[in-house]
Write a protein that binds this DNA or RNA. Structure first.
Lengths: 137, 137, 137, 137
DNA sequence: GTGGTCTAGACCACT
DNA sequence: GTGGTCTAGACCACG
């Protein structure tokens, strides 16, 4: 359970936890049947108020990502991986769509946007290539 | 001054006003020298309290978008259009970059993302084309 | 009557007018018995609302700098010059005192302040010398 | 947190709070990491409405003097002390410069001003000396 | 008429 | 508990 929280982000701590756990489920870092840390442990581990940790887990349960069995702990649900994976892809498409709508509102032509996109992608690719080999975590 | 507020949005009313006015300045719907509605008129028009409208306009002044002269009203600043325009483009690039990073985190290759992007863009273009002719304003 | 108003200053327009007229009286540019422009003329001349001009003159009268004789106009009072001159010097001393108090509050020693003062004065003197001969108004 | 507000001052209450907190940071009475009183406590303490106190603290955050973490309180920022200190010194220099310009406008020679300054400083020094020993806090 | 400040009191989200 | 937003309504200074 590697969680990386940013207290100065506008997105609430509990939401950051939820998001990152869902992502780990989607990517297979957490697999169906895996046991999550207890609220207490989670709170200590990510240095957060116990209420915040509790709220995060509660939210995960509400979304059906995990299931709490009293006395035993909280476990990743069976079909969670595929569901979260689909959600992630759906979100990506939505992000793209938002970009397109935004471009329209801004008066940028779709052609110009596509160009811009290609441009940023190229830059990004180069930056990635530069990092190769220097990776630690 | 067409403003469209969503009271159920998590973004505060005053911030929604700020955002939309900035956009209108960036897009040239409001031009340097133009006078904004008075605080009172704005409040009535968008159905918020006078204080809320005042806060929005104060925020706009703080950002240098408008200049208020007591007793006369508030006016769009001279260089506001270009500045806001630049901000808007910068935001667009940032949105694209976030998309790229996000893709990386999700394990999607940049190629797959580019494909996906082209795909959504095509769909969007068609939808746009379909709307043509039904446009009034 | 040369008045130089700054609409973007925090000090109100009417107060700027008052201040500058008093200064001119103190410095002898306006002398006892001199007639001020009418409210109407003043307003046109300095490009200000008539209410603002009226308020300025009213304030000058309240302070005894000028005296309005209905049907004839407003005139600089007899002893105004010496009084305003004294006021000006008094204000200068007060400004100095404020500086001293401020230095105390800031934890700057009086020695350091004196040094600082000498320093700025030297710089100021040089800048003045540089301007000589290039003066137009 | 000793704050001394003057309700009859033309400078708004919230701005007075901002100013005094900044000064305390500059002078080291409040140090980086220190926690400010809560909005509610501050309001009670200086006898203003909660909104007024909140506005002051928001303004401080906007200026980067403090950082607020919802649910925890607001804390003095790391580099705030040096920044505010620099601002204070800058203001002092500006005050001196204003004095010099003012002297020029008034027709006082710089020599006369320097003399005057030395004179007031001497008086001030004596008054300070007289107070020694009577100080309690 | 304009904007600015302040109070009172309510409601909400986050920790 | 924390801060943030919003409304209602009053008062003030400026033009």
């Amino acid at each position: 359970m590697n969680l990386d929280l940013d207290p100065s982000s506008p997105v609430p701590l509990y939401a950051q936890i939820v998001e990152q756990v869902r992502r780990q489920v989607a990517l297979g870092a957490l697999r169906p049947g895996d046991r999550l840390p207890t609220v207490r442990d989670l709170a200590v581990h990510v240095r957060v108020n116990r209420n915040t940790a509790a709220r995060a887990i509660q939210e995960l349960e509400r979304r059906g990502v995990v299931r709490t069995r009293v006395g035993q702990g909280t476990f990743v649900q069976d079909r969670a991986a595929e569901i979260e994976r689909a959600v992630l892809e759906e979100q990506m498409d939505q992000a793209i769509d938002r970009l397109l709508v935004e471009a329209g509102n801004t008066g940028i032509t779709l052609e110009a946007l596509a160009e811009r996109f290609a441009d940023r992608l190229e830059k990004f690719r180069k930056k990635q290539a530069g990092k190769e080999g220097g990776e630690h975590e």
